[in-house]
Design a protein around this nucleic acid. Structure first.
Lengths: 200, 200
DNA sequence: AACGCAAACGGACTTCGGTCCACTTCCTCT
DNA sequence: AGAGGAAGTGGACCGAAGTCCGTTTGCGTT
């Protein structure tokens, strides 16, 4: 249980408390579910003050995100440096499909966190650095495959849209779709976009 | 300023207060912006108690939505009974494009409300009856145009995705796209989907 | 007219996220 | 070693959303 030390040197007590907080949060999530505890509960469980909590994690949303930051970073890493077809080395279309599959798998495991992370605080998916990252990645692949057709930027957002927590949760839990069905759907969309004629 | 009377008979005081509340809200929105007032402010401005506020509008999110319920219903109406190409009478593809244009126009005027409506309370776009309505509409048109290809349902969500408040606000305010650019983008997406080959 | 009661009212209260700031602790530099 | 100060800590405090429940009021009935 750890998160990236943002600074050069982290004071010992700070580090200790950060760990405590993350563990306490994880424990609480497991015990009472993600909506069953307040920030005071976290502080109490971790044995720290509320101020400490907020110093390290600006808001509840960030705290929850921090719980999945490791797998998230791992996924990003494998996009840049991982093996093909997720990483470099495969054709752009293949990589795009692999990206969708990967992200959907990730979502399937972590939606609960991502969704409730967004429900709190002002964290807007679209203004989160992670979105920018995915955006750049997909834009690159799409341009490699389509050339510089107009509206590529828009299509990137359109492809990324259904890979967000809310749509995913809706499809899986609300509409009862299986992960495979969702994947298949996204591939259809992806193929449609990849086959789209260049605009005038 | 009025909303649909849900019941057969509405008591006089109830009606009076409902109007007061809606007017007060509108006034506050204009005066201090949508985030500048609390529910207490609304109650005070309307001269009613907080309990009354919550009796009529379950939460802040609903209250704000109520402010745009008239134009929203008008739009829905014109989809069902309006003139072509928005209403019946035109080819499905045309109607679909008209739908996108219409909804984007609507969004351009009302995003602020829709977005902050979602920011509060538990209103989830996907579980709101309005989403179901749009969903059915688009599904019908898509099926008329594509036949019963697999994954039609998924494509409906994919088309509807970028027509949500968050993506729209992101594109318009965050990325600085013009309404026309957004429209053009959606048409591209729409054409791509309409041209998508039937899946096995 | 006045009775009765369901519906409507109102505001005190609870809960929770987030801020503030006086105090403490750790690290560095001499 | 120990002095100085930046970084870290903790909990009282605040604002706002949403609940609860005792009181009031409109309105059909007798």
């Amino acid at each position: 249980m750890s998160a990236a030390p943002t600074q050069e040197r982290e004071r010992a007590d700070a580090r200790r408390n950060r760990e405590r907080i993350l563990c306490a949060t994880a424990r609480l999530v497991e015990r009472v579910g993600i909506d069953g505890f307040s920030m005071d509960d976290v502080a109490a469980e971790a044995g720290v003050g509320k101020g400490t909590l907020y110093r390290r994690f600006g808001d509840k949303s960030s705290l929850i995100r921090a719980l999945i930051s490791e797998p998230e970073q791992a996924f990003q890493e494998s996009l840049i440096r991982g093996a093909a077809p997720l990483g470099p080395g495969a054709a752009p279309d293949e990589r795009l499909h692999a990206f969708g599959d990967g992200l959907l798998t990730f979502l399937d495991r972590h939606v609960v966190y991502m969704q409730s992370a967004e429900r709190f605080g002002g964290v807007d998916r679209y203004n989160h650095p992670v979105y920018a990252f995915y955006r750049t990645h997909v834009a690159l692949l799409l341009r490699q495959s389509l050339g510089d057709a107009a509206n590529t930027d828009y299509l990137v957002d359109a492809l990324l849209g259904p890979l967000g927590p809310e749509p995913f949760a809706y499809q899986r839990d609300g509409r009862g779709m299986s992960l495979d069905e969702i994947r298949a759907g996204w591939h259809t969309l992806c193929d449609a976009v990849l086959a789209s004629p260049a605009q005038p």
